[in-house]
Design a protein around this nucleic acid. Structure first.
Length: 355
DNA sequence: TAAGCGTGGTG
DNA sequence: TCACCAAGCTT
């Protein structure tokens, strides 16, 4: 049966779309997760700043990973105006470890745009939000719905999974996205759109999980096409992914008077804008010491493998003493934890200090 | 449009 | 163990 025919229902049946929304919201009223950035179901929405901050942090990032960062950011920068006034280096260091550092650069750009162009208040429409840096289709819809109560079609990976299963959409991702979005639109209610969006995400996170979905306790089971099949977890169907290449690089740990030489990576690209150890370019073959920041007696301290989204890096860590470097800043080694190093370089630093 | 972009949790 | 993947955005 097609998505449209199921959503339309047969003569004499309750419309399935309305039933799905009602069943989901009733479930959410009882089972909503309590999260630091969330208002309980049916209560006034939280500060748009909190909603926006949490949504950006949650992009491709788990709730568990976000929680401590969200608390730290809110503690240090309680308002969007405060965040807009932050120094770039302070914000990038505070984001260190969370990944996808373009988010941090866009976060600051967005805060400054809201402060400068919108009087410190977030736009209250999906289109207005969508025009801000770092807010794509998902985040603009989520903030519009959750913070401002607007009806918006909020589609993240959870919603894609739930919807693909509800309607047993067999077309593989990403080609199935338009159909999934259309189906999500059909089941999104006019009222409580924010609760509906968060309910879909809670359901996807806790019940309609990627592997081993808990169909037996799912409030949407009566209306789920996939649950009626032998293998609900096969939805959504995904295209095969490409193999991950291995790249090689060298990180240089140069010590002088209890300090280590750190550099600021270029604004864009991998780990862009972050404080880092000096490295040469990352290549397909193991490199030499040609890109060292100084002439010195470089000694091997170890190697590590760090897996990124689209390649794996084998990083050789070498150490030396000397003060002849021209670029960079000398950072006290006993305060290296405060340097805001991304995880790759935090791991490299640990290797160097253990050598 | 497809590729580039981090990290930590999980089964 | 390790392959998969998470409240995506940008170019």
């Amino acid at each position: 049966m097609s998505v449209d025919s199921r959503l339309g229902g047969r003569p004499g049946e309750a419309p399935i779309a309305a039933s799905i929304a009602a069943d989901l919201l009733a479930w959410y009223d009882v089972h909503a997760r309590a999260l630091p950035w969330r208002a309980p179901p049916g209560t006034p929405p939280p500060d748009p700043y909190r909603v926006w901050l949490s949504e950006v942090m949650l992009q491709q990032t788990t709730v568990a990973a976000v929680k401590p960062y969200f608390r730290a950011f809110l503690d240090r920068w309680p308002t969007v105006e405060a965040l807009a006034a932050a120094e770039d280096a302070d914000l990038m260091a505070a984001w260190a470890g969370l990944g996808y550092y373009a988010r941090a650069r866009n976060l600051l750009a967005c805060a400054r745009a809201v402060a400068r162009d919108h009087g410190g208040r977030f736009p209250d429409t999906e289109a207005g939000l969508r025009a801000l840096p770092g807010l794509g289709a998902y985040t603009a819809a989520a903030v519009a719905a959750i913070a401002f109560g607007r009806r918006a079609v909020v589609v993240d990976a959870n919603v894609e999974r739930v919807v693909a299963r509800l309607f047993a959409i067999a077309e593989p991702l990403p080609a199935a996205r338009p159909a999934i979005r259309a189906a999500a639109d059909r089941i999104t209610p006019e009222a409580r759109a924010g609760d509906f969006a968060q309910a879909m995400m809670d359901l996807g996170s806790g019940i309609c999980t990627t592997r081993n979905p808990a169909c037996a306790i799912c409030p949407l089971r009566p209306n789920c096409a996939a649950a009626a099949t032998a293998d609900p977890a096969r939805f959504p169907v995904k295209a095969a992914k490409k193999p991950k290449p291995v790249r090689h690089g060298t990180a240089f740990w140069l010590e002088h008077n209890g300090a280590v030489l750190l550099v600021r990576r270029q604004p864009k690209g991998m780990l862009g804008g972050m404080r880092a150890l000096p490295t040469g370019p990352w290549a397909d073959t193991p490199p030499a010491l040609a890109d060292a920041p100084a002439e010195a007696d470089w000694r091997p301290a170890g190697r590590l493998t760090h897996v990124f989204t689209h390649f794996a890096l084998e990083l050789e860590v070498v150490v030396a003493s000397g003060s002849s470097a021209v670029d960079g800043e000398w950072w006290p080694i006993d305060r290296i934890a405060d340097a805001g190093l991304p995880t790759l370089f935090a791991r490299a630093a640990a290797l160097a200090m253990a050598a």
